[in-house]
């Protein structure tokens, strides 16, 4: 029972971590909460669904389409909703409102056009389980977990080793100085949003396959915000730790206490942690810049 719960928790935690990393990546550069990210993930799931079910693509290709589609959407989101504010050097409050607006707009646009219907991915692995010493875990869970961690590792490699990755990390410390050193900030920010969108595509696909595809599925991504805050906004290792931690703890609460108190638990955990550690586990921003 214990190992079983732990594995399930890790599988969910992997997806949470993936979403939290995408969210934290944007935060680390522009220093605001991109609340539109949940909607991008939701759209990623829809794109994946259309590619796979309506157009009959194989799963690998569908994931690729979803990654590219969400990446473009996220990039477009930045160009249309944030770039004008960035040019005006608006405060992060305005970015946040704009992000909220985008999220409400996208979510309800899907409602109004595609409708509130639930869509199911075909049962590729859902029914099959791996059995090992009495512990059973869904193949999808294993796949999602492995894929999530590989994606996060790949991103980490990119940020640590490549020239562009170094520029992104530099910009997350000080965007002005980075710009003075000849980095094209507008292109860099576009790239960061594209990357975050790509992660959104992957997590959207997995969320869609694990649960169902519907307009408010972006709600699950609130867990990613919570995970990112627990880990410390703007810190990528923090986002991973926060995501995995939240996934595992939640699964234990559902398994041993009750699934009803699960969401109340996540929230209380967040508030309690912030009271003790206002920056989260690995955060580096204590207070806002005035």
């Amino acid at each position: 029972m214990f190992t079983q719960t732990l594995l399930t928790g890790l599988a969910i935690g992997g997806i949470y971590a993936l979403m939290a990393v995408g969210y934290s990546l944007v935060f680390s550069i522009l220093n605001f909460s991109n609340f539109a990210y949940g909607s991008i993930i939701m759209l990623g799931a829809y794109i994946g669904y259309y590619a796979m079910v309506r157009m009959g693509m194989p799963i690998g290709l569908a994931i690729a389409v979803s990654i590219v589609g969400s990446g473009l959407l996220c990039w477009l989101n930045e160009r249309l909703a944030y770039a004008p504010l960035r040019k005006r050097k608006a405060s992060s409050l305005f970015f946040m409102i704009s992000a909220m607006g985008t999220s409400i707009f996208l979510e309800n646009l899907v409602y109004a056009t595609i409708g509130a219907r639930f869509y199911n991915f075909p049962e590729l692995f859902a029914k099959s389980n791996l059995e090992f010493r009495g512990i059973s875990i869904g193949v999808l869970d294993v796949f999602a977990m492995v894929f999530s961690f590989v994606a996060i590792y790949g991103l980490n490699l990119f940020l640590q080793k490549s020239r562009t990755g170094i520029a992104i990390r530099a910009a997350s410390y000080d965007i002005e100085v980075c710009s003075l050193n000849g980095v094209n900030i507008a292109a860099l920010i576009g790239l960061v949003f594209g990357l975050a969108g790509a992660l959104a595509g992957i997590s959207g696909m997995f969320l869609g396959m694990k649960y169902i595809v519907y307009p408010t599925m972006g709600w699950i991504t609130n867990k990613a915000y919570i995970a990112a805050v627990i880990g410390g906004l703007g810190s990528l290792p923090g986002a991973v730790v926060g995501g995995v931690l939240l996934g595992v703890l939640e699964t234990f609460v559902s398994a041993y206490v009750s699934s009803v108190v699960r969401d109340v638990f996540s929230f209380s955990l967040l508030v309690l942690l912030l009271m003790v550690m206002p920056t989260g586990l690995f955060g580096r921003f204590l207070e806002e810049k005035v």
Binding site: F27, N222, V229, L233, V260, F267, S268
Partner: peptide
């Protein structure tokens, strides 16, 4: 939450969770 002087973002997310927790 206010005692901890949370950033605007953190506070917003905390209230988001509070709203949902209340409904549950």
């Amino acid at each position: 939450t206010l005692k901890a002087k949370l950033r605007t973002d953190y506070f917003a997310i905390a209230t988001l969770g509070f709203g949902e927790a209340t409904r549950v």
